[in-house]
């Protein structure tokens, strides 16, 4: 990731990498950071490009804590790009990078060169469009992140796995088959397993990139119910092409078009009386 110099300025200790980078410790410190509690993520004057052309331009957006924020817009509008910038998933794309602006998480700038991205990604989990459990057991999928964080006590691991599976509303369906292969689960169960895997390492923010687009309506309903339930403990940012899903699960909605944030606000308002004509036209199915 190309990072402009001023963004590397003062980097908080909690996000700075260290030789014995115990991710768990870093994440624990990070969660104790004093930021503006009402905003989990603050994006300011943000430009991002994969090549020369800006994929995101002048985006300023606040993402409130313990709320579900939906990012909507036609394909190529930059919503997934923004999502991936929040936990720096775009770092590995050659030539891609931030051109301007800042992203602060709990008050901490996260774009700095010295930010510990492993700790950051633990703090900000991600769930993808296509469920992607590891080809191991259900138990090991959830335990994986905890093990690499240094947790080895069998009892503690078992407790954490159960807690995560319960939180992901998957415990009752899997408690008798924890050591069976994760790939034997249905698609919807695999996606909820991925959510359980994400929350096992105790993130504070969960990014979801079209988490239901590969699921049938019943599995979708279960994941949507889970999202609504998780809101009390996590800040959730969801990219979706499904307008009805945005209205069902999100508190706030941000509409993007050709790399720009056109309008954002309370979801009910965005879908009943949007202020911008572009928003009205898009949500009403007049272009996209």
């Amino acid at each position: 990731m190309v990072v402009i110099p001023e963004l590397t300025a003062p980097t908080p200790d909690v996000l700075r990498g260290s030789e014995n980078s115990a991710a768990a410790a870093a994440a624990a410190s990070l969660s104790a950071v004093q930021g503006r509690p009402e905003m989990a993520v603050e994006i300011r004057d943000f430009d991002f490009a994969y090549t020369e052309e800006l994929a995101l331009e002048d985006v300023t957006l606040d993402i409130p804590a313990h709320r579900v924020t939906a990012l909507i817009g036609p394909s190529g509008c930059g919503k997934s790009t923004l999502l991936r910038c929040i936990n720096r998933m775009n770092d590995l794309i050659p030539g891609a990078g931030v051109r301007r602006g800042s992203i602060r998480v709990q008050g901490e700038e996260i774009l700095g060169r010295t930010v510990d991205v492993i700790a950051l990604r633990k703090y900000i989990g991600m769930v993808f469009q296509k469920y992607n459990p590891f080809p191991t057991s259900i138990f090991e999928n959830v335990a994986y992140g905890l093990r690499i964080s240094g947790l080895s006590n069998r009892r503690a691991l078992a407790d954490a796995v159960e807690r995560s599976l319960r939180r992901a509303a998957l415990w009752e369906e899997t408690k008798d088959r924890l050591h069976e292969g994760a790939l034997s689960l249905s698609g919807g169960q695999q996606q909820r397993l991925c959510i359980a895997r994400t929350i096992a390492v105790d993130p504070k923010i969960i990014l979801m990139d079209e988490p239901c687009s590969a699921l049938d309506p019943i599995a979708t309903a279960k994941v949507e119910e889970l999202i609504t339930d998780l809101r009390s403990d996590y800040t959730i940012v969801i990219v979706t092409h499904n307008m009805q899903q945005a209205t069902r699960v999100s508190d706030r909605t941000a509409f993007f078009y050709v790399g720009k944030l056109v309008e954002e606000g309370e979801t009910m308002k965005m879908f009943t009386r949007p202020e911008k004509k572009e928003t009205e036209d898009y949500v009403s199915g007049k272009f996209g």
């Binding site: 307008m243 209205t247 879908f271 009943t272 009205e280 009403s284």
Partner: peptide, 10 residues
């Protein structure tokens, strides 16, 4: 059929 929103819903 169309789950209207905004002006359409109104």
């Amino acid at each position: 059929r169309y789950q209207p929103v905004a002006t359409d819903l109104r």
